[in-house]
Simulated assay, not measured.
Amino acid sequence: MKNKKEPALHNKRRKNNEESKWGYIFILAPLLVFIIFTLYPIIDAFIISFKEFKPLKTEWIGLDNYKNTLKNSLFYKSLINTVVYTGLTVPLSMALSFVVSILIVPLTKRKQNFYKAAYYLPAIASGVALSFVWKWIFDPLPSGLLNRLVALFGVNNQNWLGSSKTAMLSLILMALLSSHGTSIIIYIAALLGIDNTYYESADIDGATFFKKLWYIVLPLVKPTTVFLLVTSVIGSFQVFQNAFLMTGGGPDNATTMVGLLIFNKAFKYFEYGEASAQALLLTAIIGIFTFIQFKLTGDNVEY
């Protein structure tokens, strides 16, 4: 009996080894993509951050790029602009997305699909095309849509993108009115995943809509909220397109974000070493904010 079991055990191990081999082969492609397009650029940027770019060669300068960045007042201003932008857009966008999701869930399946598609449309539209639309909305001339709207309330024409007082608010307004599609779809999926028995029990106890919202919905969608909060903050700290296309960072650097500052350093002034140092500092800042968010909001959250 022992001799009969050994070949069977050997064949089983051989089959498992072949299956494992194919598994490694299948994950090799995404692993190579990650190494080539993510890991290698990070390592290369780390090395470049200790160098000064020159036309014929680069020179090793140690921590000078980091020191110059930490002494640069524009870096701190861009960081403050980014924090202000993030602090206003992320919580307001999440609140609006949650409210819209609550309103969409009771609708029929066909209406749900219509509204999800309508809200998600800006996410797949060209950022350049959307920027042209928003530039028309913020047009300082009386023909601008926003100026025509505020004129109804007796407000004079405003140079929304050309004034340091309103440029940042204009970018925030643009973000609040055009970037909810992904959050809404994720929130709707989370809300539809809540078991109806919770609501039935709450109805028996005579719970109001707001009590259901507070004691049932919010705790059960907390993992989704934490996920959206973390990813939204990370994305907002890397904001570039809106500032670049709408204001170019002006006026007087009022809308210069860290992402735009890094872009200008690298591709406008060709200071690749300092740009890499700023990018790595931004990465560290995002990591710290992410860690704090998980510590403050991630308790008792399972994914």
Rank of each mutant, 00 (worst) to 15 (best):
Y269N: 11
M168F: 03
D195F: 01
I262E: 06
N68C: 12
L146I: 06
A254R: 09
S164N: 14
T86N: 06
F37K: 06
L70D: 00
P30K: 00
Y272K: 07
A175D: 04
G193A: 00
F209Q: 10
P91S: 02
A275N: 07
E302A: 07
F209M: 09
F294D: 01
V133E: 00
L130F: 01
L96D: 12
L146T: 03
A175F: 02
K111F: 15
G62M: 13
L213Y: 00
K111P: 14
Y272S: 09
L88Q: 05
V150P: 05
K109R: 14
V230R: 13
F237C: 09
Y40W: 11
S101Q: 00
T58Q: 10
I186E: 05
S78D: 07
G23N: 12
L130Q: 04
L28D: 01
L103M: 09
V84G: 09
K21R: 11
S163Y: 03
T208A: 05
T225D: 08
E302W: 04
K295H: 06
T166S: 14
L171R: 07
Y303C: 12
A202P: 00
F114S: 01
P41M: 03
E200P: 03
S164T: 15
L56N: 12
L169Q: 13
P55M: 00
Y187G: 03
K268L: 14
T166A: 13
I204T: 10
N113C: 10
W160V: 13
V233C: 09
S97Q: 05
K212E: 02
S143Y: 08
P41L: 06
L245A: 12
F34I: 07
Y85G: 01
N242G: 13
Q158K: 10
E59N: 15
A45I: 07
T89H: 05
L107Y: 05
I234R: 08
F237R: 01
L96I: 11
P122K: 00
S78I: 05
W60Y: 14
L63K: 08
N156E: 15
A243L: 08
L296S: 13
L296K: 15
L103Q: 05
I124A: 06
A123F: 15
T89M: 02
W136S: 12
F34S: 01
V226Q: 02
F227D: 01
I186L: 10
Y120E: 10
Q238D: 11
R14W: 14
I36N: 02
E302G: 08
L245R: 11
A279T: 12
S20L: 08
K111H: 15
L146F: 07
S179Q: 09
N300Q: 12
K109W: 13
S170T: 09
W214F: 14
S163A: 02
N147T: 08
N253P: 10
V150Y: 09
K12T: 15
P219S: 01
I288Y: 02
A8E: 15
G154Q: 02
I104A: 06
P140C: 04
F291K: 13
L191W: 08
S101V: 00
T38W: 14
W136A: 11
N11Q: 15
L281D: 00
L228E: 07
